[in-house]
Amino acid sequence: MHTRCYSLTGIMLLLLTAGCTKEFNIELDKTQPLFVIEGRISNLTGPYYVRITKSTNSLGLGGGPYNDSAEAVTGALVTISDDSGITDTLIPANSYNRYRYFYFYKNGKVDSIKERLPPYYSDKYRGDRGYYETTKITGRPGHTYHLLVRTGNEEFHASAYMPNAPEIDSAALKEATINAKGDKGLLPFVWFKEPQNEKNYYLLMYNPITDYPYDNSFNRFIPSGVYPFYVVDDALLPPYINGMAVQMMVNGHDPYSNNYPYIIYNDPVQVRLSSLTKEAYNFFKALGRQLEDDGNAYRPAPSSPPGNISGNALGLFWATQISHKLILR
């Protein structure tokens, strides 16, 4: 072999403009809007809410994070009945002149104050936004609930069974790695026993302390990009969950949502562990998937979340036992 060595000077010339995204004009097929029904009943304090809206053919209506752009369906008959014979006819929740207790943590004590509900509504959106609230029914684990919605000539049904949720042993805030970069942040963690002999599905989320005994799933508008329903199936869970991070779902394509949401404020936090049926798990899983991926070449073909409302309506009615813990600080 010719052994003379020649030093190779580095060759570094780069005008790389790789991998970008740009907006793409897309026209959706003009199809009939569908009814959308979202409803939940739990073992927490009511009222429980059902919301009826309509879908749209447009991708978005604009207006920013706190703009509720859904077309509300008002004047519907909504009932929830349970398997013990109770039927509750829901009333429209134009709730700006209703009062409720708001909780806080001060001087080592959890306290509450009575306030008008809800403080998040701007003046513009007060009024009937398609919410209906229960008046008397209470959710109990192990029971099945039936939802009926009648609007115009259309009638929709859904049933939901409330599975049991394990007790949370403890919950704490812990410094944790919050992204691939290795950044640290505070995340709530939970400890609980996982029954290994049955198939379970869970939803984990955290709330500010303000409404901790209430079910209250619909009175807040959540800025998009973050979706508070993180679901797990027990296939990979050990018998004892020795500290599991509670995370938010983040919109996967948002180039600015680099970090997972983590707790930066000093508020106390309530951690909720909700039990799910397989049906509800599949629905939330599919919703979560839409935030992670939407027809990207690296993902499966996107598909509609499999709801449980009969009569060609979108959405889900579900029942859940929620076990919860406060992390006070």
């Binding site: 995204t21 907006e23 978005g60 604009g62 752009s69 998009s224 394509h253 948002d254 939407d294 027809g295």
Partner: peptide, 14 residues
């Protein structure tokens, strides 16, 4: 893909 980077305003991106 279609994504809602700004709430209530989903857009298609290539």
């Amino acid at each position: 893909y279609i994504s809602e980077i700004v709430a209530n305003d989903a857009k298609a991106y290539q």
